[in-house]
Design a protein around this nucleic acid. Structure first.
Lengths: 212, 212, 212, 212
DNA sequence: CATGAATGAGAATTCATTCAT
DNA sequence: AATGAATGAATTCTCATTCAT
């Protein structure tokens, strides 16, 4: 029995190993340049072995995305329900969670963009696609509730909460993209955290009512 | 002699035709799904013929990007030097120019993102790469001057002008991405203009000094 | 214009060349042992070139079958409508047509069997599948009419005409299989024609009424 | 000692289990779609374990065939030597034995066809190949004797007995193929027995002399 | 200039078979 | 005896690019 447990643990570890290798290679060389063989080689395996863990390349890539989003989703729920935080603090915590997730799963944004722009991941099972859509929706819903809350309790200027939500996501995604691009040119320094913090502070100061 | 002129004009037209076809196909199917043969077929040409006009696929794609950026660069210069506009108005004009460029060259953002994220266009000549970097820098520089100007004339809160510039670009890029993704889900309505306007208005209200 | 004609002719010739190469290789080595690369090599092409003429391997193989069956279908129609032939003669002509088709398209039976037994050709377009089903049905229908005719005009013993049709086809297919198998062991002599003729003569003598 | 016996019994059972699984999967999905892993999974075994019982895939498949043919061979001998049966009855009993064998070992025909048409089982040991050829020959010989007997005792029209033998086998194999193919289209009813009986009755009535 | 068939260098995926545990 | 992860050799298919006509 214990050995079954160990087997499962080893299997899960191998899966994680593959995901890590894929993740780092995508990050290094980009999505389309990352070949199954490269991933395999990175962890001293043969390409065929990967197919024991993932049905195909797209499923492997989707799994990276799902893991990142699920991680983020959990954090978002906690923040949303935390009665110790006021609305403004929640938004700041959301931003920090996004940043943390990005730090540990830098692929999140990259993958999201690819899925959005390239009709990528065409070879995934319906179940996987649903899983993706589901976790995605959960995060959005959760944040939208907070923006609505802020409007009704007078923290934020009256406006369609969707505009705030869109600006929040757009700002985050765009800054990641932008700073990553700059990092390529000058890899020594990482200005992302600083720019993110300042930008979201401007964002908040732009949507808060006078009284606050 | 006149016939040489005509020939050159025809050649330029052909080039434009190819760019338009490439542009619309990339927009429709994504960057990686757009095949040389598809582009050729779209304008009743053959794959081989494209190579008379562009050295290779990457050069063709780079040319799309350069054209869009040059278009934007010109507009940006004009705004920057327009003494009838105050600083805030200039920012709004920049945003509008970006939006116009995006409307006529929707690939700009898409391409920028690809170049940033995919280390795409690896197969371009040094000259082309320099051209790209150059026009890119011109735009950035121009906008940065305006943000600096706003800080020195008291319109904007004192801050590193690069933060404003980054937020400006990040916000624009991110919103394009975000709204395009949503358009896929619900293609009926296009909320981009509205969200852009409101977001940049929030942005401005967040960076302006009390007195303004 | 003439050159367009020539191009089309050349293209058709190439297509035929591929079909011939595929046909002879399948015959030699069997269906599953026949690789795209072998076919290409046989006519001094590269694998990729085949895909200009056939969407994929299954489509190529299906085309062989369709060509053979269409060939047979035409002959069958002619026989069926030939008022100079009595019913018994028509059956003999059907048999001879089948044999002729088998001689020029030996794959027909082989393919039919594979399709029947192996759920092969899973990768064909709906259109191709319909084409196959259609030509198949035409042949069967045509022959069934003749058997019905024979029963109503008193040539054949009263029986479900489908039984006669099934026996006709079964006998033909089975003998091909059987004699081919024996040819492997002793390739010098070809007994098929003789065995076919005698067997169909026994078949006819078994279904004819006394009076005939 | 008894435990050695038991061990051998268990081993034989395992072997049978594997054969049954293979048999039913080949029948369901076809020869080429049946993977070692599927067979193993079906009886809660692992791929590696199968190799304790069969040297390789081809040997496993050959064993199925040999078993079926040996079963048939025994029945054929009994019929051939049964002095209570006249020649015609023997032929009918052969047909029924074939049908029974087909019912319990439906692979027989399928395998035979594959071996004949696909040069399959290329990976078997000489011994296995000889075994196959041997049991095959036994059956043929046995039936040929009966046809010869029928000719000499005046039951059948004078003809090369090989023609009768070929027609007998061809008819049986062909009908199996044909009816199985039709079963795919309309799985509700099984017309095989009826068509077989009627076809062999026509066969007999075609080869019998007037006097019988 | 244009053609378009052909190339050639991959890339993903499959699977019988092996082997350390 | 059994496990099952891993191998490795195929095999199908793709596509930017070239080149004889």
């Amino acid at each position: 029995m214990a050995s079954i447990d160990r087997r499962q643990r080893e299997k899960a570890q191998r899966r994680q190993q593959i995901q890590d290798a894929a993740s780092s290679l995508i990050l290094e060389n980009g999505y389309y340049s990352t070949k199954i063989e490269d991933i395999a080689k990175k962890i001293d395996l043969t390409p065929g072995a990967l197919y024991r863990h993932f049905k195909n390349k797209d499923e492997l890539f989707a799994s990276l995305l799902i893991d990142a989003l699920e991680n983020l989703s959990k954090k978002t729920q906690v923040i949303s329900n935390d009665s110790n935080l006021n609305t403004e603090e929640k938004i700041i915590h959301y931003k920090n969670s996004l940043y943390e997730t990005y730090q540990t799963h830098p692929l999140m944004v990259r993958c999201l963009i690819h899925i959005q722009f390239e009709r990528v991941l065409s070879n995934i099972q319906t179940e996987t696609a649903l899983q993706l859509a589901d976790v995605n929706r959960k995060i959005i819903d959760c944040m939208q509730v907070t923006f609505k809350e802020g409007i009704s309790n007078g923290t934020f200027i009256k406006e369609n909460p969707l505009v705030y939500l869109d600006m929040f996501w757009g700002l985050f995604t765009g800054l990641i993209l932008w700073e990553e691009a700059k990092k390529d040119l000058n890899p020594k320094k990482d200005f992302l955290k600083n720019t993110l913090d300042k930008s979201f502070s401007i964002f908040l100061s732009g949507i808060k009512t006078e009284s606050t």
